[in-house]
Nucleic acid binder design. Structure first.
Length: 388
DNA sequence: TCTGGGGTCCTAGGACCC
DNA sequence: TCTGGGGTCCTAGGACCC
């Protein structure tokens, strides 16, 4: 409900008054990101094509995702949580894990459900966002418990009741089990968590492999020792766009690639990072998804070098298969911190990928856009040709 | 009624190194 | 003459999450 809530807070007289509210893409190829509970009664679900949602619920109103406002509100929620809990991990824009280990003395004998409810009220008062909290001694238990807390409530599983709590659910309710694993499980006649808990460890390992077998054996008992990671390190930055209609023209694809490259490069610099790996992703007209990547000897951050790498990857993909393109994307990974000073190429082991001059230009462009808006400075045309 | 965009993690094969 | 065993890194694809 996060996106619906934000859309309503941003437009109280419009979206705020609309009970049948859908947030998501409105183009011919859009999907629903989030639907109000009233709209869900019509069978609308997130991820569903907007066209289909409007057939199920013709009187619904569709508004675009208020992206910027969602990021702001998410940060605000995270801020409140960090004031109330020592360890907070932002798992996504609308989901956080809190590790309250060590706060027992501070909280005295207060019941965890009381603590959770206080957190819930505090978040709502400070940010206007209604949140649900699930609690437990194991991460997977807390996660599954949030389902029972929705909307706008709290559900805490007492210590010792983890296994019996988990036994109430279907395997499809477990985070980490999707359509593919579900099919495999069904082939062995396993549908519920209780079904899986009744199978011996060795059999699960034999059926699903040692890693997944052990994983399933533990989750079916509510065992999940994975830590709450509060470091907040980004591992990748990407941007992708589905076109209104398929694009088959190479020059048009390069123009799109330039915009995507500039966008991820700017996000990269905004986090004071450099990327060693550039990846280009294509989804062809028949929905076949392909990607090509290149890892550079050092981290880069400028539009020029990232676009040059992306262009040569795009050509590689197009060379392998040249057909109508539905989606184009650029990703950056292998992220490293920006070096405090320029490295000097003492031994002449090859030219630097980007110069300090490149970086100064890129950062100057960022500053202009910060002050005068994204539209203030834009690439005029495709400047660089690929190396090969 | 064809299927968004932002992510994370895992796997398997190959190159390369000692 | 024709081949071990350990490791890391890179690439591509896929499953999964919200």
């Amino acid at each position: 409900m996060f996106f619906v809530q934000v859309a309503r807070l941003e437009d109280p007289d419009g979206a705020g008054r609309e009970p049948l509210l859908l947030v998501g893409g409105r183009s011919n190829r859009g999907v629903i990101t989030s639907a109000s509970y009233a709209a869900r009664d019509f069978g609308v679900r997130s991820g569903m094509p907007t066209r289909r949602a409007l057939q199920l619920c013709p009187r619904a109103v569709v508004v675009p995702v208020p992206r910027g406002a969602c990021v702001e509100r998410s940060r605000a929620v995270g801020g409140v949580l960090r004031d109330l809990s020592p360890v907070v991990q932002a798992a996504s824009i609308d989901e956080f894990y809190l590790d309250l280990t060590g706060t027992e003395r501070m909280l005295g004998s207060e019941d965890l459900a009381v603590t959770a409810d206080r957190i819930r009220r505090e978040v709502r008062e400070s940010t206007g966002i209604a949140v649900s909290l699930g609690g437990g001694t194991q991460r997977v238990v807390a996660k599954v418990a949030t389902r029972l807390a929705k909307p706008d409530g709290v559900h805490v599983v007492p210590p010792g009741e983890e296994a019996s709590f988990m036994a109430r659910f279907r395997l499809s309710d477990l985070p980490g089990i999707g359509p593919a694993f579900l099919r495999q499980l069904a082939q062995k006649g396993l549908r519920t968590v209780a079904d899986a808990a009744a199978v011996e460890r060795e059999w699960l390992a034999r059926w699903f492999g040692p890693a997944r077998g052990a994983w399933l054996w533990e989750r079916a008992r509510g065992i999940d020792a994975s830590e709450v990671d509060a470091t907040g390190r980004r591992k990748s930055i990407s941007s992708e766009r589905t076109f209104f209609t398929d694009v088959d023209d190479d020059e048009e694809l390069e123009r799109r690639l330039l915009k995507l490259s500039a966008s991820v490069a700017s996000a990269l610099r905004g986090r004071e990072l450099r990327a060693r790996t550039v990846t280009v992703k294509i989804r062809d007209h028949d929905f076949r998804t392909r990607q090509a990547g290149n890892t550079l000897p050092e981290g880069v951050e400028t539009d020029r070098v990232i676009f040059a790498a992306a262009t040569s990857l795009l050509h590689r993909l197009r060379h392998r298969r040249r057909t109508g393109v539905r989606l184009l994307g650029v990703g950056l990974s292998n992220l490293v911190r920006q070096a405090p000073s320029t490295q000097i190429d003492l031994f002449g082991e090859g030219p630097e990928l980007e110069t300090e001059r490149d970086r100064s230009i890129a950062r100057a462009v960022d500053q202009v856009r910060d002050r005068y808006g994204r539209e203030a400075l834009q690439p005029a045309r495709v400047l660089d040709r690929p190396e090969h």
